[in-house]
């Protein structure tokens, strides 16, 4: 799952950090490189489309997504119901549209939680060093010592069925990559002259961490956060597919796919599985291509 787990710790050194103009041009260069990457641009286009669908689904769907009996159960796709109907006679297009909410919320919220937790833990470990670093590293290694999906399922079962708990459960399995990355950055940046200068002039530790070290590690952190989104969406899909999902009647792609799978496995037409499967695959592809583009653009020293 965690595709970036155990990646060699590539410490990207940024040219400056002290000179503001230099940073601005770095960002501008990066954006230009990103625009030239065709796959990344297409991916961004799809993600924008997905965002629109998600927002629209909050206010409008062709049919009420949870209304039972808008059509006959297992209606094959037709002009009236573009994706057909599920076993309870609910319009599948409406449900797939609404399902994007869960995926996007899980992806973005997890990335945010991991960003906060990973950055704080990583900065502290890297800057403090000593026993703090040792303890944090041991904890990180323990989390790497168990399959992440098992941790997520255990936490889900412990906490109960809700969207928030899914986000917590998934965050608990992907925060380590971010923490390791930030720790590495923090370890190297703390040795630089401008940090030493700040330290010598008596600046508070928290200010050094967030005003000096953090901004200089921002590039790789953002790239890493982008890759956490598809991992979170994928893990959520696994969880809901295995029956550990959001409480019904809320539609989510993994859950619809799971219903579709049991129909498929008993010899029914595969369309119920097909549409959420395509939706989830395209979303993950888009996030991964976008992340790749972002990395190539803003983190040029990191090898593909």
């Amino acid at each position: 799952m965690a595709t970036t787990t155990y990646m060699p710790e590539v410490v990207t050194e940024y040219a400056g950090g002290t000179v503001a103009r230099e940073q601005v041009s770095l960002w501008r260069d990066g954006l230009r490189r990103l625009r030239r990457n065709k796959l990344a641009v297409v991916a961004m286009g799809f993600l924008a489309f997905l965002a629109v669908v998600t927002v629209v689904s909050l206010f409008w769907t062709p049919y009420p997504p949870n209304a039972i009996g808008t059509c006959q159960g297992y209606t094959f796709p037709s002009p009236k119901h573009l994706m057909g109907c599920d076993d309870l006679g609910r319009d599948l297009l409406s449900r797939v549209m609404v399902g994007s909410q869960v995926s996007l919320v899980v992806g973005l919220a997890t990335a945010f939680v991991v960003l906060v937790v990973g950055v704080v833990v990583g900065l502290v470990a890297g800057y403090m060093r000593g026993w703090v670093d040792t303890v944090i590293s041991v904890i990180i290694n323990i989390f790497y010592g168990v399959p992440p999906l098992l941790i997520a399922i255990s936490l889900y079962v412990l906490l109960g069925a809700s969207l928030v708990n899914i986000i917590i459960a998934i965050s608990a399995t992907v925060w380590m990559d971010m923490a390791r990355l930030v720790r590495g950055q923090s370890l190297s940046i703390r040795e630089r002259e401008f940090v030493e200068a700040a330290r010598a002039s008596g600046t508070k530790t928290s200010k050094i961490l967030f005003a000096h070290i953090f901004p200089n590690a921002l590039g790789p952190i953002i790239v890493q956060a982008t890759f956490i989104i598809p991992i979170a969406i994928l893990t959520a899909a696994f969880l809901t597919f295995l029956g550990f999902g959001v409480p019904p009647p809320q539609a989510d792609w993994g859950g619809i796919a799971s219903e579709g799978f049991s129909a498929l496995a008993s010899g029914f037409d595969p369309y119920i599985l097909l549409f959420p499967a395509i939706a989830i695959s395209l979303t993950l592809l888009a996030f991964n291509f976008f992340g790749d583009g972002l990395r190539d653009a803003f983190d040029p020293r990191q090898k593909r």
């Binding site: 799978f261 989830i280 993950l284």
Partner: peptide, 13 residues
């Protein structure tokens, strides 16, 4: 990239 973007349950199905 497609390989690690398509969930295993989709390929299995």
């Amino acid at each position: 990239v497609i390989g690690y973007s398509v969930p295993s349950f989709v390929i299995a199905s």
